[in-house]
Nucleic acid binder design. Structure first.
Lengths: 157, 157
DNA sequence: GTACGATGGTCAACGTGGTTGACGAAATAG
DNA sequence: CTATTTCGTCAACCACGTTGACCATCGTAC
């Protein structure tokens, strides 16, 4: 059975939250692919956001809630794709700074624009107040330390 | 930066939807672990739901939107964990029926109960009407073919 | 100034959840 | 009876995560 059992109303909520998320993410990446970023994966947007203007792999791992090794591997892939670059830290020979490239910044800016458009589309259907109400409600239900990115288990399985 | 840029309001919605989903799933599995199912992973609930009273690996793959090979591997793991069992189809020697074991049914029932309790908890905080409103709104925004389970990309990365 | 603990990056091995391609066995269509 | 389709499986691979180990470097304490 594909759709959840109506006798189990609790199944509906997580399913719809996931479906809503996936809808937005799928729309985003379809649009990003059209705009010259076909190899940007759902994970990458979060990583680029977390990199910001520059960090290290360890700090990135903390922000994303994963090990520094996992963060390092993800950085490797994004470097290979041309979205990030590494540079030595002149002040500390152990640290390697991770920075977005121009392409990385372009992807990030386009993501922001597309997400804004998608939110507008939701507002056009549901009304701006209901979208804001969903955001308010969810913000009340998710623990503050889950809403921040620096907590384990944000993505992936 | 961990929290999204407030100048980019669009980032908020997907982040909160994911956070809401993860909060429910994390709470569910913390409770399931307490109730004797510590090795049930987030994915497994969907799979058990999709198996229902019995299917084959191929059909399961279609329902879950993944390849039959991926479905087969997941069934392997759930068989090893004691949640599913395979049996030959007397009517078709190619097919192998996949059925939940008693333990699988127990996990499924407990998941349903816990999800219902979690939804009640949300209703106690937000009010039953707002929870229902979130469900209604999300149902309007997700394409029907995404809400059904038999579409690619439901879980995982 | 040197010894030492904490930190940053990397390597290796592994687990899980996916993919595609190939292939044999069994059912079905002509 | 033969051709095609379907089911299950094997193999190779990829993305993303884990632990454990290790070395280089930094900061501190003596």
């Amino acid at each position: 059975m594909a759709t959840p059992d109506p006798d189990r109303p609790g199944f509906l909520l997580p399913l719809l939250l996931l479906a809503g998320f996936r809808t937005l993410i799928d729309d985003l990446h379809a649009e990003l692919a059209r705009q010259g970023h076909p190899d940007l994966r759902p994970l990458h947007g979060f990583v680029l956001q977390a990199v910001g203007n520059g960090t290290t792999a360890s700090e990135l791992g903390q922000r994303l809630g994963v090990s520094k090794q996992a963060a390092g591997k993800t950085v490797d892939r994004l470097v290979a794709l041309g979205y990030l670059e590494r540079a030595d830290d002149p002040a500390d020979a152990r640290r390697k700074l991770v920075r977005p490239t121009d392409r990385g910044l372009d992807g990030l800016r386009r993501s922001a624009v597309v997400f804004d458009q998608l939110r507008d589309r939701w507002a056009a259907t549901l009304g701006p107040d209901r979208v804001a109400a969903i955001e308010d409600d969810l913000r009340r239900m998710v623990p503050a330390d889950v809403f921040r990115l620096d907590v384990p288990g944000w993505f992936g399985t």
